[in-house]
Design a protein around this nucleic acid. Sequence first.
DNA 1: AATTTCATGTAACCAGTTACATGATTCA
DNA 2: TGAATCATGTAACTGGTTACATGAAATT
Lengths: 182, 182
Amino acid sequence: MQDDQSLSTLSLAVLGLISEQSRTGYDIRKAFATTPIGHYCTSPGAIYPALKRMDACGWIVGSTANKESLRPKKVYALTEAGRKKLKQDVSQPVTREDVMYRMDHLLLRFAFMGKLVSRQKTAKFLTGMGAEIDSYVASLKQFQGEAGKQMPLHGVLAMENGIEGYQAHSRWTRRAIRSFNR
Amino acid sequence: MQDDQSLSTLSLAVLGLISEQSRTGYDIRKAFATTPIGHYCTSPGAIYPALKRMDACGWIVGSTANKESLRPKKVYALTEAGRKKLKQDVSQPVTREDVMYRMDHLLLRFAFMGKLVSRQKTAKFLTGMGAEIDSYVASLKQFQGEAGKQMPLHGVLAMENGIEGYQAHSRWTRRAIRSFNR
DNA sequence: AATTTCATGTAACCAGTTACATGATTCA
DNA sequence: TGAATCATGTAACTGGTTACATGAAATT
């Protein structure tokens, strides 16, 4: 995990959770298991190595409680570098690629923006996201118009599913912007 | 890739495309790059090894054209075992986990069902999918009701986005079922 | 003559999955 | 006292990413 690369979805989720409050690996696993936050790997084999990597990068620091015990509990806190990294990651402009295959990542970015960027910046993020979604929907509809005729029913329906999902995201975006301008 | 494991999304997409018609690795890359079919890796580093693995499993066979040339073109065709494997994979019951984090995989399964299972089975798949989505939406709303009050605006909005996306999928499911009963 | 498209691959790397391993504390 | 929960890790594996490498055929 290089410093300049963008965070994986798992790393983003972990770093975001720690940015809200200091947490142990177990706390994070519990959050993944019990809340609708990107519920991937609740497995220790993903989370503990990720924590280790981010510690090595200097984005989080682990303070060990119960040092004398055999299994000391490690509470990770966000560092200033970590806050910077997270802020930088969530602040990237929204690209077509984000919309095409990283919507979950995009929503995580939004979810953790609260304490990191201004309301204006958040509104701008949502505007950019809405614009990219709308432009992508337009291209999907164009494809539908061109290739749709010779596509089998299943393909046509699957495309409609995709378009309608994105349209729902687009509507949400507009509503969210209003709630930030209010 | 064991024979009994379920296909990765990439493998499903590749196998599905080959099930429609025999294709070369390049054809598949082109399909990923130019159609809205799960547009992941258009990179040869993912597709050629995947083809090799599926060939080794006996799901596809490559017939080499231009044998005398330095870079012979390999056209892959679906085998009977491959057709069985694909049919088995798309026919699995829809689980909560599929809905929670494999919606794209689910839609791919639907998209390739056309030539593999009966209209009744397809309608049943859609019914199951709709039921799982609705039940998941219900649980999300319950979470929203319980934890929503103490959640920050960003979290609340992100949850709404998720719920509305799933509701769009649910509406689509009902419409798709109608089009299969018609 | 140069560029694009067709066409297939490998090698190093890395993150996530699965399975295993260990042990303390709390609660019924 | 036994089960559930708290708590942290490692090891082997595997699939996908990035970058590299090659060269023919078609188009401009």
